[in-house]
């Protein structure tokens, strides 16, 4: 197991390096440091001198990849790419274009994203499992058919629609939840209820449909027939035996939710004006703030790597037959 984990960590470093390079290339293909400066300095009376000064203060006055004016190794090291990547190795995410410390921003926003992500994660898995188990229990009946139709409909609808409809129905029509916004402290519950509901409903379609398929496959196996012939109730068969044997694909599909827990649901946080990590990512993109974009991509890719590593470990826990070498 330890050798496996060590090997995965090495791969993780290589993946993160590749992601860092890709983000850098993509970002600076679309945005130049000059564009970034002018966006920050505003539209009126922006002089070339002010632009150059802005770039110099943030280290964007150097070439991006190769500095032909430097000598020796400095040709490579005295560049924006190496300079910004070197800081990343110290986990120094730098500052936003306005001067705010990004690490501090992440620390401030992480609990807010947690406040939505953790309930969404737990509820999505719980509700999807229970709902799909219910459909599997009533397989072949009209209830099952109606349930499947509902799930397909939920799958087909964009999450953006759920957000807008959720706001329209629960905030405007029924007036049961704030339309958007966030107040820290105990009052935060009223602000996160609707986003959580929307996210859970949006995930219900694809997840429950997948789980139902898995359960139906398990229900056809011999051990289920054995359990029934021993007189176990259907409830016990579904929840104690079938569910346990279906855990591997459930774990795999749930792993993709973990980055949302920590990294924030970008669209949801924007529409509900929740100041979490997702909103920070959007801010970085719209403000052409490379430091934020790179920090959030770094954070996100680290989360994905950690999530899938955890998935592999959980496989070994869920199924004793699996060994990690």
């Amino acid at each position: 197991m330890l050798a496996y984990l060590a090997r995965r960590l090495v791969y993780a470093v290589l993946v993160m390096a590749g992601v860092n390079l890709l983000v850098f290339i993509l970002f600076f293909t679309i945005n130049t440091p000059e564009d970034m400066a002018r966006l920050q300095l505003g539209g009126k009376r922006v002089t070339a001198e002010a632009v150059e000064r802005w770039k110099a203060e943030r280290g964007y006055d150097r070439p991006l990849y190769l500095n032909m004016e430097a000598a020796g190794v400095s040709k490579l090291t005295d560049t924006v790419f190496v300079e910004t990547t070197a800081r990343l190795l110290h986990f120094d995410f730098g500052r936003t274009n306005e001067g705010r410390d990004i690490a501090e921003e992440i620390r401030d926003r992480l609990p807010i994203s947690f406040g939505i992500g953790v309930p969404v994660f737990l509820l999505t898995i719980g509700v999807s499992i229970v709902f799909s188990l219910g459909l599997a229990m009533f397989r072949g009946t009209r209830l099952d058919t109606a349930g499947v139709v509902l799930l397909v409909a939920l799958m087909s609808i964009s999450s953006l629609f759920f957000i807008i409809m959720g706001q329209f129905v629960f905030s405007k029509m029924l007036r049961l939840a704030p339309l958007s916004g966030y107040v820290p402290g105990p009052e935060m519950f009223s602000f996160v209820l609707l986003p959580i509901l929307v996210l859970v409903v949006a995930r219900l379609g694809p997840d429950a449909r997948l789980y139902r398929t898995i359960y139906l496959e398990e229900l056809g196996k011999d051990y289920v027939r054995t359990a029934r012939s021993k007189g176990l109730s259907e409830f016990a068969i579904m929840f104690r035996h079938v569910l346990r044997n279906s855990l591997l694909p459930i774990i795999t599909s749930s792993a993709s939710l973990l980055p949302v827990v920590f990294g924030g649901a970008i669209v949801t946080e924007t529409f509900f004006a929740i100041p979490g990590l997702g909103a920070l990512t959007i801010e970085g993109i719209t403000q052409q703030d490379f430091s934020i974009v790179r920090a959030m991509v770094f954070f996100g890719s680290a989360l994905y790597i950690a999530a899938y590593l955890l998935t592999d470990v959980l496989y070994a826990v869920a199924d004793p037959r699996i060994r990690l070498h």
């Binding site: 009376r45 002089t47 802005w54």
Partner: peptide, 13 residues
């Protein structure tokens, strides 16, 4: 003043 961390858009005018 260049000691001020952010530039002035009106300095040039």
């Amino acid at each position: 003043s260049p000691y001020v961390p952010t530039p002035s858009p009106l300095y040039g005018l």
